[in-house]
Write a protein that binds this DNA or RNA. Structure first.
Lengths: 111, 111
DNA sequence: TCCGATTCTTACCTTTTGGTGAGTACCCGA
DNA sequence: TCGGGTACTCACCAAAAGGTAAGAATCGGA
């Protein structure tokens, strides 16, 4: 999602960093624990490698995700949430609960 | 934002209805009170009429927004939140607070 | 020597989203 | 008769997001 230069309110700013199709899902998955690239790819069914890296890089740049490279062969890279990322995930919990509660209704809308 | 047919978690479902560039802002604005079309257009600086209607229609379809037409001349249409819409807005409050708290940091990222 | 595993990287293309500008319909008042 | 105000609607185009598929680098093991 293209960013605004300035945000009109907090919600707007928050959507600046978790907007798009995959970031909220990544945040949730990484909140469960440290994950390797391949694990994330398998966890987010349907994501392409290109998108996965792109999103991870942006989240790293935004300070939500920490990336650690182990110089092994084959290469190993581990992704985890920073404190900042964890705080965001926590702030999204009520929204997740709301969605859980109304999931069926929302899915029924476009059948 | 294009919808998934099914959602993998509650957060995913919630993003299904508030995803995109404008809906969260509209929800917030309508939570302040009943608004006419023109008022919303002026409140969401930069939105085009086409986008505004499109988003409002989708939110109406999703049961978040109520639309009431007054058969007057010139025409008057009032938009307001449904209970469902208000419950969603409430669930987003912590996220809004988080964004408010970190707004400066987030804006500073892409300068 | 060739294959497999893993994490990317790149070029190219399609789909989706968003913007522009014009037009419609209505009635009122100047 | 003409312009103004309101809430759209439409056709067309541009920008952004997202997908596909191929390739690169590395080393160990068959």
């Amino acid at each position: 999602m293209k960013r605004r230069r300035t945000y009109v309110c907090g919600l707007d700013a928050a959507f600046g960093v978790v907007g798009g199709k995959w970031k909220a899902l990544l945040l949730w998955e990484l909140d469960q624990g440290v994950r390797r690239f391949g694990e994330l790819r398998r966890a987010l069914e349907g994501i392409s490698e290109k998108m996965l890296i792109q999103q991870l890089r942006e989240m790293e740049h935004d300070g939500l995700v920490h990336r650690e490279v182990f110089r092994e062969v084959p290469p190993r890279v581990e992704y985890s949430l920073t404190d900042f990322g964890r705080s965001l995930n926590k702030a999204m919990e009520p929204l997740g609960d709301w969605g859980e509660e109304h999931k069926a209704r929302i899915e029924a809308l476009h059948l």
